[in-house]
Nucleic acid binder design. Structure first.
Lengths: 352, 352
DNA sequence: GATGAAATGTAGAACGTTCTCCATATAACG
DNA sequence: CGTTATATGGAGAACGTTCTACATTTCATC
């Protein structure tokens, strides 16, 4: 604003590292050093540079940074935002990142493997510093190949043998066991699991893990002989049809463990519609402890796996990996039961 | 794999535009032209280059692209992923982007203005090609300042006077009118609106728009004299308390219009808990037509604003702006009513 | 053929950082 | 005072693209 404003030979108005250097009367390299707080900077220099940055409102270009060194961005890949579990994970990631100078960018693949691959590639091409993949659909070898190019932490992906990347999981086997144990404790013996249609199943997926836990707990309860698992397709229409069929069955079980709240809640709705009383005719327990499950109207017992916590742990693991760790880590959190009326009728009946 | 493999003087293993050029026996510039399908490329050249790209599995670095020209990425900014309306918008954005060579990166600001600003800046620093801001909290002048640096389309931000950026909205005034008209048509006269606590209110926000529509419709219905608006705070605990107080009121109205499904559904839950029958004692209509509202257990009448469609329209607008349009566009979609049992009791009663 | 216009391909300078040497100044030590 | 270590600051080459300006070729048209 003053007269000697002309001094700057900038032809454009973008403030670059060069502008800052000129303004502070130091070299470009010096400014860069201050930015990255690298070794070999005196207090005096740091002060000058910091001042200049402040006055000019300088922000380093992430694009340029990525071209040469760190971009201070981590990518988060989600298969599907509709699942109420995922926002929690994001919240956890953002929480850990907030005080650092890292930032998260999120990609959504809508469960399409094609898009998932291309988003991961994009994030690599952006030279992001690391990736958190939530419930990826990709096979382990492919993930390992990507992990050679960029630090990766997978959440909701059971592959404790992976050496190229870390995994962070709730113990889904244990979670399913807890669910079954709760049903057994309520006295139910005729129990079935409703799981996800076959197309979705790598062994690494949370669904298959829950099936394993379910079977084991049934076995332990002396019900190993019949531990039936019904498969519910994902396509909305087929899904409802399958559930209606299940509810109408003559030999319908007395209690059901659903692999996910999403299915459990739909089941509850259809049960009400078809006159099947919960829990008098059918006890239901879900998985995820979503906010919908907690609604008084729904009141669904569920396994809580604290997505927020998983997000936090995953992010911390990723940062430590970015900062040099190379040995793979595989972290397992124990989930917990949240008991509600769908499990066992209480004195204050469900219907208000 | 053959003997003459040594020809490549590549010291690293990253496939760059130079690798491709060498492999195809053309210049770097030529490859770049093919990539951007720019003018001045013969069929023969294009074929050679395309082949080389294919064989080498070349992917251009987004970081480097951003440094010079387009990055072919658009940023999407969300205030909060928990709102069930937002996944729909994302789906719309991704749908339009899928066939193009653009990709979306999402940032989540958790309703914190600080973080919102810094995410927008980051996206600019990444040289993203354009931004879709969903329900931004920032004042119009600030958005205009950003819009000078990057094409911006705001969704859920009523500022038809903005010249620097586009807006895409459902007509929230009209939506509220439709809700009130539906209540009037059912014969209710004693109607109240439950809106959002005061802290949240620029005039540009969807909430305030819905209040305006509510008042106008009440006026038209001859109820202008008393068109009460209750304010519900956002903090979870205060929120519930306020709703309980509302439900317990002696002069509780006969029907209520909630600014959002999130609130309406909580209200429904508390009503059940407190023995207030819906719709016999209290009719409820929400806003967003979230998937939860559609559940048989919930059965909440709601205004549908098709987030997916808004996302699609916003994305198309953004692309046209990236490609040169400068005159601002302000698009308004008309929402529609989805009638359900919370509005008026049907012969098949709510309780199955 | 000669001439101009249009089409095609290339060289090489940006873009804004980081980071590896270097050069210098200062301190420490015999 | 030399000599050697240490701390500080700077030059300049990357990084992998895009894109302008130019050189060359091809094609009509007279």
């Amino acid at each position: 604003m003053s007269v000697e404003d002309k001094q700057k030979p900038q032809r454009n108005d973008r403030v670059t590292i060069r502008t800052v250097a000129t303004h502070a009367g130091v070299s470009v390299a010096a400014v860069s050093k201050v930015m990255r707080n690298a070794y070999g900077v005196s207090e005096a220099l740091r002060a000058k540079v910091t001042d200049a940055i402040e006055t000019l409102g300088y922000r380093p270009s992430r694009a340029a940074r990525g071209l040469r060194g760190r971009s201070f961005t981590i990518g988060v890949l989600l298969i599907d935002i509709r699942n109420p579990f995922l926002p929690e994970v994001i919240a956890g990631v953002n929480g850990v990142l907030a005080p650092s100078h890292y930032q998260a960018m999120i990609g959504v693949s809508d469960a399409r493997v094609q898009l998932e691959t291309s988003l991961i590639e994009s994030m690599i091409d952006y030279k992001m510093d690391g990736l958190v993949l939530v419930a990826p659909r990709l096979p382990s070898e492919i993930l390992a190949k990507f992990a050679a190019q960029i630090p990766i932490v997978a959440v909701g992906y059971h592959d404790a043998g992976a050496t190229a990347f870390d995994t962070v999981n709730a113990d889904d086997q244990r979670g399913a066991e807890i669910a079954v144990e709760a049903l057994l404790a309520c006295g139910y013996r005729d129990i079935e699991m409703l799981s996800l249609g076959e197309r979705e199943g790598h062994a690494v997926s949370v669904v298959r893990q829950r099936e394993i836990g379910y079977r084991r707990a049934m076995q332990r309860g002396g019900l190993g002989a019949s531990a039936p698992i019904g498969k519910i397709p994902i396509a909305p229409l087929k899904r409802e049809a399958a559930m209606r069929k299940f509810l109408a069955r003559k030999d319908r079980p007395r209690a059901v463990f659903c692999w996910s709240d999403l299915d459990a809640i739909t089941l509850l709705s259809l049960a009400m519609e078809m006159g099947v009383r919960v829990p008098e005719d059918l006890a239901v327990i879900g998985y995820d402890n979503s906010s919908t499950a907690a609604l008084g109207l729904v009141n669904l017992a569920s396994i809580d796996q604290s997505g927020r916590e998983l997000g936090q742990i995953a992010t911390r693991a990723l940062i430590s990996r970015i900062e040099g760790r190379t040995a793979a880590e595989h972290i397992l959190q124990t989930p917990s039961l949240v008991s509600r009326n769908s499990l066992i009728g209480s004195e204050d009946a469900r219907q208000g």
